[in-house]
């Protein structure tokens, strides 16, 4: 029987030491990393036959729209659902993301990303959910740009690869910055443009970007993150000058 070999970095909790375990699971055509993790859960034995526990990992949609199952597969951060075994070199090496605290095994806590969305006020402050008639018109061109930005699933790939994003840096990172551009582009969101720009002009904001531009290379949704950042550079610069000369 054809099998697939996995090497998985495991860790019971944040304050215990990580260790590696190897697994061998039956091969099926078209299988992905998630299939193998389920196989391990059904038969929790290491490659040398030792009983172990099922691996902990996060997943939900399994079609790369929820962002949950992000991990490091063979050294590169990505969603494990779209990591097809046929396209990977064996042993397939799975590790948790390194920029977020490990919860267990491949699970990490990405709360910091959601907090960043709060910081940058990533929402349209509508007056209420009552029937207030139609929304503002939007050109198809602006819709294109907005749609590309609004596909961000807060998966954290852009942050995992960012050399400026880690536990000793307060940087909010590309994902949240790009959301500022999204909301400032919306006809209603534009009304709070300056307020939102203010949220990224302090420490940990846009100025902490180091322009390594890894974010845009790994974004699974092909979001033009570096364009967003450069655009916000322009907007914040113009806003700062305006504020200075009018002060």
């Amino acid at each position: 029987m054809k099998t697939v070999r996995f090497k998985i970095k495991r860790q019971q909790s944040l304050d215990t030491a990580p260790y590696w375990e190897e697994f061998e699971v039956p091969y099926r055509p078209g299988m992905n990393v998630i299939t193998a993790l389920y196989d391990i859960a059904k038969n929790p034995k290491t490659a040398d036959g030792k009983a172990t526990s099922a691996v902990a990992w996060d997943a939900n949609c399994l079609e790369e729209v929820c962002g949950a199952c992000t991990m490091i597969v063979n050294g590169k951060v990505r969603q494990s659902c779209s990591a097809l075994v046929d396209a990977l070199q064996q042993p397939i090496c799975l590790e948790p993301m390194t920029k977020f605290p490990v919860v267990r095994d491949l699970r990490v806590n990405r709360k910091r990303m959601f907090d960043a969305l709060k910081r940058v006020k990533a929402w349209i402050p509508i007056d209420g959910t009552y029937d207030l008639g139609e929304g503002p018109k939007l050109s198809p061109q602006d819709q294109h740009i907005g749609y590309a930005l609004s596909k961000c699933m807060t998966c954290g790939c852009c942050l995992e690869v960012c050399p400026q994003y880690h536990d000793r840096s307060p940087f909010v990172g590309a994902a949240a910055l790009s959301q500022v551009r999204l909301f400032n582009l919306h006809p209603t969101g534009k009304m709070q443009e300056e307020e939102r720009l203010e949220t990224i002009m302090g420490e940990g904001g846009i100025e902490d970007c180091g322009n390594a531009q890894n974010c845009v290379r790994v974004c699974p949704k092909d979001i033009p993150l570096t364009t967003s950042i450069a655009d916000l550079n322009r907007k914040t610069t113009a806003y700062a000058l305006k504020k200075f000369f009018r002060s």
């Binding site: 050294g75 590169k76 690869v161 050399p163 400026q164 880690h166 000793r168 840096s169 940087f171 902490d208 180091g210 322009n211 390594a212 531009q213 890894n214 290379r217 790994v218």
Partner: peptide, 15 residues
């Protein structure tokens, strides 16, 4: 202080 290099792992030219 905010620099944590990973250019060997993510070997892109911009990096």
């Amino acid at each position: 202080w905010a620099w944590k290099d990973n250019s060997l792992q993510y070997s892109y030219s911009r990096n």
